Computed example of a mutant assay.
Amino acid sequence: MFAIIETGGKQFRVKEGQQIKVAKLADEAGSEIVLDKILAAGGQSEVKFGQPYVDGAKVVCDVLSHERDKKVIVFKKKRRKGYSKKQGHRQDFTRLRVKSIEA
């Protein structure tokens, strides 16, 4: 069974037992969260597509941890002008484990 979920402005294809990294959520680590924005869900024989979301479908996930991603370097330079700027950025994210998919 799989589902295509939407969270944090992005879409993810998930299966039961899979771990995913999503944009930071406000829920506590160790708690359970229910995602109800399901774009498509199904198995090998039948797939349901929503318009835009599948009615009555939900994905139950465990919140494992809140972490920070690798550093991304933002470097700007204008040639022959003596201008250069270096800046780093680390994005916050939440790690989820998919417990069950109900469609």
Rank of each mutant, 00 (worst) to 15 (best):
Q91I: 10
L39P: 02
K15A: 15
G50N: 06
F49C: 02
Q19N: 12
A29M: 05
F12K: 03
V47S: 05
V74L: 15
Q11T: 12
M1T: 10
A26V: 07
L96W: 02
V72D: 11
S31I: 00
F2S: 05
E16S: 05
R97F: 00
D69W: 04
R90G: 08
G56C: 07
F2I: 02
H89I: 07
R97W: 02
P52A: 04
F2C: 04
V74N: 15
R13D: 00
K24Y: 06
K24P: 03
R80H: 09
M1V: 13
R68A: 14
G8W: 09
Y83P: 02
G82P: 04
G56E: 12
K70L: 12
I101L: 07
K77I: 11
D55N: 15
L96N: 03
G8H: 10
F12N: 01
A3Y: 01
E32C: 11
G88I: 04
K58E: 15
G82A: 02
Q18P: 09
F49R: 00
D55F: 05
G82F: 05
K85D: 14
L39V: 11
T7S: 10
K15Y: 10
A26N: 12
Q87T: 14
I4M: 02
R68S: 11
K58H: 14
V98N: 03
K85Y: 11
R97K: 12
R13S: 02
K15N: 15
G50F: 02
S45E: 15
L25Y: 03
M1H: 11
S45R: 09
L35Y: 07
K86Y: 08
G17R: 00
D62L: 11
E32W: 08
R90W: 07
K85W: 07
G56N: 13
S31D: 12
E46A: 10
T94N: 05
H89C: 07
G82Q: 03
I101A: 04
D69Y: 05
G8D: 08
H89V: 06
A103E: 02
V54G: 01
S100F: 07
F75E: 11
K81A: 09
Q18M: 15
E67R: 10
V47A: 02
K71Q: 15
S100Q: 14
G8Y: 11
Q19Y: 02
A41P: 00
V22L: 12
A41H: 01
